[in-house]
Design a binder for these strands. Structure first.
Lengths: 336, 336
DNA sequence: CTTTAGCACTCCTTTCATTTGATTGCTAAT
DNA sequence: ATTAGCAATCAAATGAAAGGAGTGCTAAAG
């Protein structure tokens, strides 16, 4: 357990380093925080904090920098999560309520807004379809060559898609399909709709490939669509001094370029809260020099997707978490 | 008009510079190309080529680098467009014919494949909806609260979307809608479906906002979807020496981050051919240090989207154009 | 026992001069 | 028309020196 002065010093060092990106010296800290102790005293505290692993030095005669453990302690114990200005509140509200929402996915708008307010890179992804279960699947014939498929999942998400046929279909066939597909797919995960099913259907049903294939293809296509990745503010990263190292910049772009990696990152977070992963805490090797903050956008029980920001370990956790909390709240009440 | 030796020198300098990213010296050129002239002679030719603007120096005692005019001459007159290996042909064929196509947009697959083969950054975008005309719009009622809208455009592209209502709709209403919407929208560009239309409909039709709004919103949404931007291989850029300058890297990421800019770039190309824009030839100020090569993916008269690669001016135009030509051909014959 | 002043020591950063080497342009010879 | 040869130019690498910021430790003061 840290005494109050150590807490103060640690918090101040994290915040100062987040601001300046320069190792923080004892002298600078005393001045900045108007501490009633001399720099020598602070130096002693800093030495202690280093001993227990919360601070690091870049070289023997440099100021101190928070370690990952230090950031973690800061995030868990020291940070204020109401670090959001009136202007920011106003800006966010306007964005989320603006007419754009009517066209665009709200999850995307939220991701973009977070990026704009925090100046970090934001990513978002639609609800994870693969883990959802099929509650019901329903086919409606519109005309002999055009059929509508409606899938309802246990997350209360509804997906529809139109299927075109090369040959005529009749009502009787559709009825059979309704029966057969539900028989096979009810309470199965969405990913069941894949090659094995296709083959099963060929065997089981008397319809030709020409009928079955477009159905399966089209459904698969629509399921994929929801998992679309959205990315905003990649350029912001380049304003940060850590990205002056080409090594780091390259790693960063590499991460963003790998779909699966970003999907992993976003989907690994817990459903209920704001998740913070600092450096090596990330399960992905590639992210060991970055920090990630995510949260899941839910409306009631409906999963609407996950939003995350990716930035340097020297991230303004206070700001990011505050903004995310506010947006999360806003999203929930907005959809009531 | 250049004599053959000058052409040879220019071509060799472009290709050598593309390979090495280092200014090409007279001595290196003689050696590399087994020229039967001394370096002094080549120096004279290089001086001439510089005088007429095809070559440049980075400083007084450096080797030569192609100017934009030099690249342009190379692209127009000197380059071979069959610069594609057996392995590459095989790889591309496999990718385009693989099962992935069944799920994924072929335009995206093509863009990704180009990026993989050329190691440049590829972008693609769906068919430009805004310029298309509405040929017919048709509503089909599935149940009292669910309606299907089908839009057919003059590019023979069909778009469908499902519309949910908060109140019941009857067949009579749908008939009226069919009449009214077609009346108003036939032969209009797709972008007509926007706010002005919405207001017109409120005035003209007796239906409530609750009916009209979901229709317009949903149609707008589906129109947007097609213009989705796809990006692959942004990380490749960082393997190129020109991106060792943070300035350049930052510009590049900035460009990719601006949706509208990339959309502009892709849509400015001519429909029929492969378009090459070198440096300042780009109409976008931001692209003045980059080159862009694009082509439109068409199937018969149907516009399927545009694919482009964005890279340094020191681009392997021969490789890029060869690969694009091959893919373009392949896409056309595949869809027959 | 806690705090602090003072100072030696460390090491990064910047600057400047020097050297090295590659390449050109030009002149004069072939 | 071609080429050998050479002075001139400039980037890039190397290394020495100076300056400065910051720490750790010791000894004294509170």
């Amino acid at each position: 357990m840290l005494n109050d002065r150590k807490k103060h010093v640690l918090r101040a060092i994290v915040e100062e380093y987040v601001n300046t990106a320069e190792p923080v010296s004892s002298k600078a800290l005393v001045k900045k925080e108007h501490l009633k102790y001399s720099s020598a005293t602070i130096r002693n505290e800093m030495a202690d904090l280093e001993k227990i692993g919360y601070l690091e030095k870049t070289h023997t005669s440099s100021g101190r920098v928070p370690s990952e453990k230090g950031y973690r302690y800061y995030v868990d114990e020291l940070l204020k999560d109401d670090n959001i200005s009136v202007e920011e509140v106003k800006y966010i509200s306007e964005k989320l309520e603006s007419k754009i929402n009517e066209i665009e996915d709200l999850t995307k708008v939220a991701a973009r807004t977070i990026s704009e307010v925090t100046h970090y890179t934001a990513v978002s992804i639609g609800p994870k379809t693969k883990t959802q279960l099929i509650k019901e699947i329903k086919f409606v014939l519109i005309n002999p060559r055009l059929m509508l498929a409606i899938i309802i999942t246990n997350f209360e998400v509804m997906k529809e898609t139109v299927i075109k046929f090369d040959e005529d279909i009749n009502e009787k066939q559709v009825e059979t399909m309704n029966y057969m597909f539900n028989q096979k797919l009810k309470n199965q995960p969405l990913e069941t709709i894949d090659r094995p099913l296709e083959e099963y259907l060929y065997d089981e049903m008397s319809y030709s490939v020409k009928v079955i294939k477009p159905i399966v293809e089209q459904i698969k296509k629509v399921l994929r669509q929801d998992e679309q990745l959205y990315l905003k503010g990649a350029n912001n990263a380049f304003d940060l001094p850590e990205f002056n190292s080409l090594e780091v910049a390259k790693n960063f772009i590499n991460i963003l370029d790998k779909r699966e990696l970003v999907e992993d990152v976003l989907s690994s977070g817990l459903a209920e809260d704001i998740n913070v992963y600092i450096g090596e805490e990330n399960s992905q090797e590639e992210l060991k020099d970055f920090s990630v903050v995510t949260f899941r956008h839910k409306v009631g029980d409906k999963d609407m997707g996950t939003i995350g920001i990716i930035g340097p370990k020297r991230m303004d956790y206070s700001k990011v978490i505050s903004v995310m909390k506010y947006i999360s709240k806003k999203l929930n009440e907005g959809e009531k």
